[in-house]
Amino acid sequence: MKTDAAAPATAPRIRTLIVDDEPLARRGLELRLAEHADIEIVGQYGDGAAAIAAVHTLQPDLMLLDVQMPGVDGFTALQHIPAEKMPLVIFVTAYDHYAIRAFEASATDYLLKPVDDSRLHQALARVRQAWAQRAASRHCERLLGLLGELSGRTLELDQALHQDCLERLRSEDKLAVRDGARTLRIAMSAIRWIDAAGDYMCIHTDQETLVLRATMRDLEKQLDPRRFPRIHRSTIVNAKRVVELRPHTNGESYLRLDCGQELKLSRSYRDRLPLLH
């Protein structure tokens, strides 16, 4: 059986519901999903009505949903779930003629029974991508709220990306970020490294990973390059957190941070990390 070891055990897990009126089908999915470390099964149900109630109470990230079930079927169940609570959905059914309706219902993927391991692997890869995009969007909304709070006015995304607005995030060597209703000020010394994820920047701190909508160049301008040198086209590191340099091939190297994380130091950026020369 193919396994997915991409997600470390400490990574956030995708909270998942299995909904199928056949106990053996639920058990089969449970066994297959156990091979994926980032999937956490939070409930199993045999009908659509129970699934609707579970979505409201458990607020899962993902639902593997059978189409044909007694009483409330899969499509009807989705019609009774509000958009703000809707999890990602993978339809699982024995009938391929439901495929078009599944994607019209904005399903992430569609699996035929008996479920093939490689197709499940592919479907979960799509789920992970969509789940990460949802998380980044929520962080972006939080950032816009923070910037609006700091500037005293409501900001659109393009305004928030302006350098003047980004500078408002800094206050005496601290980076201000919003966590729900709270505004947190994170010491620059707590930042381990920063890397790019599409249109977003991920700031890895001692406590958590924060995501904001910006480019590498935008954020690089806000940091002291002597303290936060760029070591790769998509990575900035806190130089004080580097404890080891390990040479690699083609003039590249790997840096080990005090937290154990390893980062690639590209040859073209080596001169930006003078403390290791």
Rank of each mutant, 00 (worst) to 15 (best):
D109Q: 05
A99L: 04
Y95E: 12
D61L: 07
P60L: 12
F75K: 03
F91A: 07
E104M: 03
Q79L: 07
A102P: 03
V89E: 01
I100K: 08
L58H: 12
I81V: 15
L124D: 06
A83G: 00
E84Y: 04
Q79T: 14
R101A: 15
F91G: 08
T108E: 14
V115Y: 01
V72R: 10
L124W: 05
P114L: 03
Y98R: 05
I81H: 07
L78D: 07
Y110K: 09
I81M: 02
V72K: 13
Q79N: 14
R126A: 11
D73Y: 01
Q122W: 01
V92T: 06
F91H: 08
D116H: 13
V115W: 01
I100M: 13
E104R: 12
A107F: 01
L124R: 07
R119L: 12
L62V: 12
H56C: 10
A107P: 08
F103M: 12
P87R: 10
Y110T: 11
V67C: 02
L65C: 11
A125H: 11
D116C: 11
A105H: 06
G71I: 07
D66Q: 07
T93R: 01
V67P: 02
G74F: 03
P82S: 06
F75R: 04
L124K: 04
Y95H: 15
T93Y: 02
I100E: 08
L120V: 09
A125R: 13
F75Y: 07
R126P: 04
Y98K: 05
Q68V: 15
A99D: 09
P82L: 04
A77R: 04
D73A: 02
A107T: 10
F91C: 05
S106F: 07
K113I: 09
V89Y: 04
Y110S: 11
L111C: 06
A123F: 03
D116I: 11
P70I: 05
E104Q: 14
H121R: 11
A123G: 14
L78P: 04
P82N: 01
G71S: 06
K85I: 00
Q59A: 15
Q122N: 12
I81D: 06
F91T: 11
V72A: 03
F103C: 11
A94C: 10
R126M: 05
A125Q: 15
Q79E: 15
Q59W: 00
L64A: 14
F75V: 02
L120E: 07
A99C: 13
I81P: 02
S118E: 15
Q122L: 11
A99K: 02
A102Y: 03
L112S: 06
T93S: 10
F91E: 12
L120T: 06
Q59S: 15
A77G: 01
G74P: 06
D96M: 02
L112E: 05
G74Q: 03
V72Y: 00
F103D: 12
T76D: 14
A94R: 04
A107V: 11
